[in-house]
Design a protein around this nucleic acid. Structure first.
Length: 493
RNA sequence: GGCGCUAUCGUCUAGGGGUUAGGACAGAUGGUUCUCAGCCAUCAGACCGGGGUUCGAAUCCCCGUAGCGCUACCA
């Protein structure tokens, strides 16, 4: 019988939840759910300098937003906690002592600064910057005596000879010669464990069955495997998922734009779209189907369909996918999101947000043009201003049509007497005018569009008119006609 | 420099000893239409290079090249 699936996402709280981290979390979550396993969140805050409370909160926030509920971890409890490494220090200390007592680890009195210099020197000479084992050669009694005298020191793990290999869940056989590994520090001078050590102790203690993590950890794995062996612990299976790169093929960073999931949230992306998009970065179902809810992903996810090559974060595809999800939302929900966005940005006066029914009509009119709440004002800003600001290119187009001013006036005139200012009668009036003028409807509509909205691209003209109402529509048509006449004085007689 | 990983359209990928190498995003064209978006149809676009194995290689193997990652008392 196979061991129960227990996987973890173990971020270090030193920034925000990066999209790469989010995808790692997602894959772990999906794998756990797919196999009825447990998804654990563990905070790796052993680096006290860089870990912050804000970053911890940002991780929670990001994960919750994506809907990746953890079964064990901070706020969720669990039998094998605590789930902050900073609260598990005694465990690492004990494990390190054990290795020291067994001669598998040794005290290192080397000065970190000097080590750093030696390393850089080696690098500049083109030599591998490996620890030279100075302290490994120290007699144990001498080392113990110096330690007893209170001399500061770290603990290093003595990497055994030989080779280390494992069957990676996504890559297959991976092998390293131990000679290329150096004796890593497991306990720092301040008695805090380093990443590789704490991760091993915890993954074993938390009975992790599969370690699914980023590719960037692949060279840590042989060290960790050696640690499992030295500690006599059962090792988990490892799976290294490819990295997410920026558009230029290098590691995704701020330079490429937003990298934290909360930033994407703030830009109006939906968690469903983000999850779906991230899942497709380095994983595919059958190469055909692309749209999956989180629940559907749980049903079809499998490790053997994780790709081996790094994936470039394709922003356009994310936007497309967000559009797919956004358009599928019911009108009320889309309106909620638009209102929340308008409120958050303060782009329109608070008073304009009070008429829910009106906003709902506006959102409906903008309709499929929106992929994100942010797109709303691109099409509907004209609703929230007294006087429209006319786009220069649009104005030039009006200016180029000598009949425009006249038609705008006539349009205003035919709209005034329309009995019910509703879609069909208004449309009839507009088309009637075009017919009377002997031109296509577009010849009337386009100038009207510019007069009413200041732009060439807007929602349907009748929606625009109804949203503005008769009064404002007529006023704007007349006003534009006046401005037009003023700008292009009648041809000299 | 050392070690490791990877290599199919611009991007994400499916496939895989014999295929018209499939899909999606982006791009182009046409249709619908008051603009745009959307929708529909169509087009263009790829197996990194060289050897080997084989009747046959994009697929398997080797070498090269390129990209990326790691090379910390960061994680």
């Amino acid at each position: 019988m196979a061991a129960p699936v227990r996987v973890r996402f173990a971020p270090s709280p030193t920034g925000y939840l990066h999209v790469g981290g989010a995808r790692t979390a997602l894959f772990n979550y999906l794998f756990a759910r797919r196999h009825g396993g447990v998804f654990i969140l563990r905070i790796e805050d052993t680096d006290r300098e860089r870990s912050t409370k804000e970053a911890v909160d940002a991780i929670f926030e990001g994960l919750r937003w994506l809907g990746l509920q953890w079964d064990e971890g901070p706020d969720a409890g669990g039998q094998l906690g605590p789930y902050f490494q900073s609260e598990r220090l005694a465990l690492y200390g004990a494990a390190a002592e054990k290795l020291l007592a067994e001669g598998k680890a040794y005290r290192c009195f080397c000065d970190p600064e000097a080590l750093k210099q030696r390393r850089e020197a080696a690098l500049s000479r083109g030599e591998p910057p490996k620890y030279d084992r100075t302290c490994y050669r120290l007699p144990r009694e001498e080392a113990a005596a110096r330690a007893a005298r209170g001399e500061p020191h770290a603990l290093r793990f003595a990497i055994p000879e030989g080779a280390t290999s494992w069957d990676d869940c996504v890559r297959g056989e991976v092998a390293f010669q131990n000679a290329t590994l150096d004796d890593l520090v497991i306990l720092r001078t301040d008695r805090h464990p380093t990443y590789n050590f704490a991760a091993v102790v915890d993954d074993a203690a938390m009975r992790i069955s599969h370690v699914l993590r980023g590719d960037d950890h692949i060279s840590n794995t042989p060290r960790q495997i050696q640690l499992y062996r030295a500690l006599g612990l059962t090792q988990p299976l490892f799976g290294h998922v490819p990295m997410i790169l920026g558009s230029d093929g290098t590691r995704l960073s701020k330079r490429h734009g937003a990298t934290s999931v909360t930033e994407y949230r703030d830009q109006g992306f939906l968690p469903e779209a983000m999850v779906n998009f991230l899942a497709l970065l380095g994983w595919a179902y059958d190469g055909e189907r692309e749209l999956f809810t989180l629940e559907e992903l749980v049903q079809v996810f499998s490790l053997d369909r994780i790709s081996k090559n790094p994936a470039i974060f394709n922003h356009e595809k994310l936007e497309w996918m967000n559009g797919e999800y956004f358009r599928a939302l019911p009108l009320a929900k889309r309106t909620d999101l638009v209102i929340a966005h308008l409120r958050a940005t303060g782009a329109v006066p608070e008073g304009s947000l009070r008429d829910r029914a009106f906003l709902e009509r506006a959102v409906e009119a903008v309709g499929e043009r929106m992929r994100r709440p942010q797109d709303f004002l691109v099409y509907a800003a004209f609703l929230f201003v007294e006087e429209v600001e006319t786009d220069p290119a649009a104005w030039a187009e009006l200016l180029a049509k000598p009949q425009a001013a006249g038609r705008l006036r006539k349009l205003a005139d035919v709209l005034v007497p329309v009995e019910a200012f509703e879609h069909d009668p208004v449309e009839a009036a507009v088309r009637g005018l075009a017919a009377a003028e002997g031109v296509k409807a577009g010849e009337v509509i386009m100038p009207a569009r510019i007069a009413l909205t200041g732009k060439k691209v807007t929602p349907g003209i009748f929606d625009v008119m109804l949203l503005l109402g008769r009064e404002r529509t007529v006023a704007r048509l007349k006003r534009a006609a006046e401005r037009l006449s003023a700008a292009s004085p009648a041809p000299a007689a």
